[in-house]
Amino acid sequence: DVEEQIRRLEEVLKKNQPVTWNGTTYTDPNEIKKVIEELRKSM
């Protein structure tokens, strides 16, 4: 579920933690925001 994935990513973003997405680890909050944007567009 895309909305659930977005929620999880936003939680990680709030905690300022790195997130691994599709085999890539993002540590930059701006990169994580881009991933969230892409997910929103795909909905």
Rank of each mutant, 00 (worst) to 15 (best):
V35H: 03
L39V: 03
T27A: 06
I6Q: 01
Y26W: 04
Q17N: 05
D28A: 04
R7N: 07
E37F: 08
E37R: 06
P29N: 04
T25S: 04
L9V: 03
D28K: 04
L13S: 04
T25P: 02
Y26H: 02
K34M: 11
K14N: 11
V19L: 12
Y26D: 01
K34Q: 11
E31K: 04
K34E: 07
E37A: 13
T20G: 03
T20W: 15
T24W: 06
V19G: 06
E10Q: 07
V19R: 00
V19C: 06
I32E: 00
R40I: 10
M43Y: 08
I32L: 08
K14I: 12
R8S: 09
R7W: 07
K41E: 08
V19I: 14
Q5E: 09
T24Y: 09
T27P: 02
E4I: 07
N22C: 12
V35F: 08
E38P: 00
G23W: 01
V12P: 02
Q17M: 15
N16A: 09
W21I: 15
I36W: 03
W21N: 02
E10Y: 08
Q17P: 05
Q5I: 15
P18E: 12
W21L: 12
N22A: 07
I36Y: 02
V2R: 05
L13A: 06
R40F: 05
S42Y: 14
E37D: 13
M43P: 04
D1Y: 13
T27E: 06
K34A: 13
E37K: 05
W21E: 02
Q5G: 05
L39W: 03
I32P: 00
V2N: 04
E4A: 11
S42A: 12
K34F: 09
V2G: 04
G23D: 05
P29I: 06
K33M: 14
N30D: 14
L39K: 01
M43G: 05
M43R: 05
K15P: 01
R8W: 15
P18A: 11
L9Y: 02
T24H: 14
V19E: 03
S42E: 08
I36D: 00
P29Y: 06
V12Q: 15
R8V: 14
W21S: 02
T20F: 15
S42G: 10
P29A: 10
N30F: 12
D1C: 12
E31N: 03
E11K: 05
I36P: 00
V2E: 04
E3G: 10
E38N: 11
R8K: 13
V12L: 15
P18N: 09
W21A: 03
K34W: 10
L13H: 03
V19N: 02
L13D: 01
R40N: 03
I6V: 05
V2Q: 06
K41M: 13
N16W: 14
L13P: 00
K41R: 14
D28F: 03
L9T: 01
E4N: 08
T24M: 13
N16K: 12
W21Y: 10
D28P: 01
N30W: 13
E38M: 15
E3Y: 14
E38G: 09
V19S: 02
P29V: 08
S42R: 10
K14Y: 13
I32G: 01
E31F: 05
E31Y: 04
N22K: 06
I6G: 00
V35M: 10
Y26F: 09
V2F: 10
E37S: 09
N22F: 12
K15W: 13
P18D: 06
R7E: 05
Y26M: 11
T25K: 04
K15S: 15
E10T: 09
L39T: 01
R8D: 05
E37W: 06
T24I: 15
E3V: 11
K41P: 01
G23H: 02
Y26T: 02
L9S: 00
I36E: 00
D1K: 08
I36T: 01
R40C: 03
E4V: 07
K33P: 01
R7D: 03
R7F: 06
Y26P: 00
T25D: 04
T25Y: 14
S42H: 11
V12E: 14
E38I: 12
S42M: 15
K33G: 06
R8Q: 14
E10R: 05
T24K: 14
L13G: 02
E4M: 11
T27V: 07
L13F: 07
W21V: 12
T25E: 09
D1H: 11
I32Q: 00
E4Y: 12
E3M: 14
G23E: 04
E38A: 11
M43A: 07
N30Q: 13
P29W: 05
S42C: 11
E11H: 07
K41L: 14
L9R: 00
N30K: 11
K15F: 13
Q5S: 10
E11Y: 05
Q17D: 07
P29R: 05
K33R: 14
E10D: 04
E31S: 06
D28Q: 06
V35C: 04
E3Q: 12
E4G: 08
K14W: 12
V35R: 02
V2M: 11
K34Y: 06
K34R: 11
T27R: 04
E31V: 06
E10H: 04
T27G: 04
T24S: 06
D28H: 05
S42N: 09
N22V: 02
T25N: 03
K14C: 10
I36S: 00
I32N: 00
P29H: 07
L39C: 02
W21Q: 03
L13R: 03
E38C: 14
E37Q: 11
K41I: 10
D1T: 13
K33V: 09
I32R: 00
Q17K: 08
N30M: 13
Y26I: 11
T24E: 11
T27I: 08
N16F: 14
V12N: 15
E38L: 14
M43I: 13
T27C: 03
D28N: 09
Q5V: 15
K33Q: 12
T25A: 04
K41V: 09
E11P: 01
K41A: 14
K14P: 03
L39Y: 03
P29S: 07
T20A: 07
I6W: 03
D1Q: 11
R7I: 06
E31P: 02
E11N: 07
V35Q: 03
S42D: 05
L9N: 00
N16M: 09
P18I: 10
T20I: 15
T25L: 14
S42I: 13
K41Q: 13
K41T: 10
Q17E: 15
K15H: 13
D1V: 10
P18C: 11
V35G: 00
S42L: 15
I6E: 01
V35N: 01
K15V: 06
R8E: 11
E10G: 03
E38V: 09
P18Y: 06
I32W: 03
I32M: 03
E3R: 10
R7A: 10
R7C: 05
D28W: 02
V19Y: 12
E10V: 07
E31M: 10
P18W: 05
R40H: 04
E3N: 07
P29K: 06
K33C: 07
T27D: 09
P18K: 10
V12K: 15
K34D: 05
I36H: 00
P29D: 03
D28G: 04
V12W: 11
P29T: 06
V19M: 08
L13V: 08
E11D: 11
K14E: 13
E10F: 06
I6M: 04
N16H: 10
T24R: 10
D1P: 09
T20V: 15
M43D: 03
L13Y: 08
V35Y: 04
E3H: 10
Q17A: 10
K14Q: 13
R7P: 01
E3C: 10
R8M: 15
N16Y: 04
M43W: 06
Q5W: 15
E10W: 08
V2D: 03
Q5P: 02
N16P: 05
Q17W: 13
P29C: 03
P29F: 05
E4W: 11
T20E: 15
L9K: 00
T20K: 10
W21G: 02
I36A: 01
R40L: 07
N22Y: 10
D28M: 03
E38D: 11
V19H: 04
P18G: 10
T24C: 08
E38H: 11
E31A: 09
K14G: 09
Q5L: 15
K33T: 07
I32V: 08
V19P: 02
E4T: 08
Q5M: 14
L9G: 01
T27N: 09
I36G: 00
K15C: 09
E4S: 09
D1G: 12
K41D: 06
Q5Y: 10
R40S: 04
T20R: 11
E10M: 12
N22R: 05
E4P: 02
V2H: 06
V35P: 00
T20D: 14
K34C: 07
E31H: 04
T25M: 08
N30S: 12
T25R: 03
R8G: 07
E37H: 07
Q5A: 13
D1M: 12
V12S: 15
K34H: 08
M43F: 10
G23S: 03
N16C: 09
E3A: 13
R40T: 05
N30R: 13
L39I: 06
E10N: 05
V35T: 02
L9H: 00
G23F: 02
